[in-house]
């Protein structure tokens, strides 16, 4: 697998005695879009948070671009520069303007000049369709706009992989589609994406690989056409019937 962007091999994690991740094996190729779904508490967010080392796994191997993640600061810094993350709660910096939110990383972590960083920031704000909000504070924006700013903030670091941890779960229903539209566009442009979500419409549209997790295990994974029409496991059938019935 020469172009595997992310590889998880037998990854295990415990919170105290609670076994949150059990032998997780997952390969995400460059340009691939993987959607992870499953009931709450199944460990899907934890998988994503382990990939960028916001949380540490205790057993197994995670490789990003062939480099194995270890505890040393250098390796963590490398991942952070290649892997972007979008959070459920946006986590924008409330004391900074939208533009400052976007330029902070490029200026402080990448050493770009203020001018270069602002050009880049405006470019990405354009891409998420909110070029006019640069000088506002996050609190002055709607939830959907805030999440799109958060996506733009990740894009400003020009990551190879973008992780999404339930990006639409904190949004009002009428704002979900504006965020999903941006994500679909990113997918079409070839971004490698790992998305934890319950938005099955989005999943059908963009996913190359569907992953279903339950109780810390990957129960089932496969192409969306098989996954949605023909889930093999009973747990996955039950989950899909529950979330697709409305």
């Amino acid at each position: 697998m020469p172009d595997a962007a992310i590889e998880l091999v037998d990854v295990n994690k415990w919170y105290g005695t609670f076994h949150v991740l059990k032998d997780i094996n997952l390969t995400i190729n460059s340009g691939e879009k993987v959607v992870i779904c499953g009931p709450s508490g199944s460990g899907k967010s934890t998988v994503v948070r382990c990939i960028n080392q916001l949380e540490k796994h205790q057993k197994g191997t995670i490789r990003i671009d062939g480099t194995e993640l270890s505890d040393n600061a250098q390796s963590v810094a490398t991942i952070r520069s290649e892997v972007g993350m979008v959070f459920q709660q946006f986590n924008l910096f409330p004391h900074l303007t939208v533009l400052e939110n976007l330029t902070l990383g490029p200026i402080k972590a990448r050493g770009l000049s203020k001018k270069e960083a602002e050009e880049k920031a405006r470019h990405y704000l354009e891409r998420v369709h909110i070029p006019d909000q640069a000088d506002k504070r996050p609190i002055q924006l709607s939830g959907g706009q805030q999440q799109r700013v958060a996506i733009a903030r990740s894009l400003c670091m020009e990551p190879r992989v973008l992780l999404f941890d339930e990006p639409t779960s904190a949004l009002d229903p009428e704002m979900i589609s504006e965020v999903l539209d941006v994500m679909v566009e990113l997918a079409q442009e070839g971004m490698t994406m790992v998305v934890v979500t319950h938005e099955m419409g989005f999943a059908r549209k963009v996913a190359d690989n569907m992953v279903f997790m339950d109780a810390g295990e990957i129960v089932e994974q496969g192409k969306p056409e098989h996954f949605f029409t023909n889930p093999r496991s009973e747990r996955c059938q039950k989950f899909l019937s529950q979330i697709l019935q409305h």
């Binding site: 960028n52 916001l54 952070r80 993350m85 902070l104 990383g105 903030r153 990740s154 670091m157």
Partner: peptide, 18 residues
């Protein structure tokens, strides 16, 4: 200050002191 703030800062490459 919510933990998400420092997590977001880490994911855009800031070190501890930044």
């Amino acid at each position: 200050i919510a933990k998400g703030q420092s997590e977001a800062a880490q994911t855009i490459g800031l070190n501890y002191f930044q």
